[in-house]
Design a protein around this nucleic acid. Sequence first.
DNA 1: ATGACCTGCCAAGCAGGA
Length: 277
Amino acid sequence: MKQRVPRLLPWLDDRQPDVVCLQELKLTDDAFADLLGAELESRGYQWAVSGEVQWNGVALLSRAGLDDPVVGITGAPGFPHPEARAVSAVCDGIRVYSLYVPNGREPDSDHYRYKLEWLAALRDMVADRPGDSLVCGDMNIAPADADVFDPAAYVGHTHVTKPERDALAQLHALGLRDLLRERWPDERVFTYWDYRAGMFHKDLGMRIDLILGSEPVSERVRAAWVDRHARKGKGPSDHAPVIVDLDAAPDGDIGPLVPPPSSRQAKTSGVKLPQSR
DNA sequence: ATGACCTGCCAAGCAGGA
């Protein structure tokens, strides 16, 4: 996060998101507040954060309300100790999760098993909380072969294995939909590009940062895209923000014939802004 | 070319990322 402040603040001012999910803060809660508290407050954001000193760390920013914040995933395993990989809260009626799913490192490693157990706990937590939800962040899973630049190169690696994709399917089985892929069903859409070897400029990346929405929220999507511009220039994260623009929730009195004059922008990013990497 | 980066720890390389 420390290295990304000069990128994050102008990005907030430019994109004007109502809700933002950050991952890989690499900061304690106190350091986050010291670094960003005043800047966020002046922009009208409330926040919930779960940090630790060197690794991991997630935050949720909102200027659309921030109710019932929950740090962590109920029943999630540690490695071996609990890690700062999840924070959620209800923003304007939607429970938004900012997640940093464990990497997995190598298939069949202890860290890989940890990843799968962590995802199972996430599924259970989402299942136990009825109501609208947005599950957002660095999922560290490429949902399909189309989500990696060279599927053959990833055979035998994490992020593409069947158990990982099955864990994602368990979230879809709860009714969550992949908002970016639904919007761009046949496009080349990546959210992460390695820093090395000019991978970004060659568009050799992966789509591992996801926004999954429950059915009613999915119906409100008016735009969904990857903010590739944020991956350019000086000092970017190696991930780009994923943005979803939602219409205001229907109030039940006015029919759907006339769209609201201004849409509400809910935004979530799988931004590893922090390293925000 | 089995390459190529980046950050935080803290002061040199290592852990970790994906």
